[in-house]
Amino acid sequence: MSGTSGSRRDGGRDRDIEGRARNARPRDGLGRPLPYGAEGVERQPEGVIRDPDRTVTEAQALLDAGRPFHAHEVFEDAWKSGPAQERTLWRGLAQLAVGLTHAARGNATGGARLLRRGAGAVDEWRAGTAAGARPYGLDLVGLAAWARELAASVEGDGAAVGAADRAPRLRGGTG
């Protein structure tokens, strides 16, 4: 795993090469930790600075592959490294991705809550822009509607959803 030594020091906690606590366990496609030694999926490198177009493109590819947890990490990098005036946008998109993650794991309550929180952040950011604006080609109106519809759906039946099947189209339409 990139950037993680995998060593277990300080009371058995995993540490990265800088000594920060960082879980080195492999993860499945939905970001759930697997036992040490199990084969997981490659994790997204953390702290990568991407331009907004690359952020959206990489996140969409991960969403399409049924890996919303990993898409959330891409959005989180943009949220933490991007301009302050865009943090609400990227945070909202990260919340949408992690909301889909929880819905795919079968956590209807947590999924619905994060989907609605993300939709609210996207709406909040959009309210401060020109009417009809599509920053980086993002369909913010469609994404907020997708999130609220999925939240209602998972609350209604409580069943896990297919992450790839229910992935949003970041630049238009819904999956």
Rank of each mutant, 00 (worst) to 15 (best):
L62T: 11
G118M: 11
G111N: 00
R116H: 10
T55S: 11
R87N: 09
D51A: 13
G92D: 05
L89F: 05
W79H: 08
A119P: 07
E73T: 11
G82R: 13
R113G: 10
L96I: 08
A65S: 14
P52T: 13
D51M: 12
Q95N: 06
V122W: 00
T57R: 15
L114N: 04
A78D: 05
V74D: 02
E73Y: 05
R116I: 06
L114K: 01
H70K: 10
V98C: 07
L63P: 08
R67C: 04
R105V: 08
A121R: 13
D51I: 09
T101A: 08
A61N: 06
A59K: 02
A84Q: 14
A61P: 00
A121H: 14
D64Y: 10
R54M: 13
A65P: 02
V74T: 06
G92H: 03
T101Q: 08
Q85W: 07
W79K: 03
G99F: 03
D123F: 03
L100Q: 01
A112D: 07
G111F: 00
S81Y: 11
G120W: 02
A104R: 00
T55C: 11
L115H: 07
T88P: 00
E58V: 11
A121V: 04
R87A: 12
T101C: 06
D64S: 15
P52N: 14
A104L: 02
L89E: 06
R105E: 11
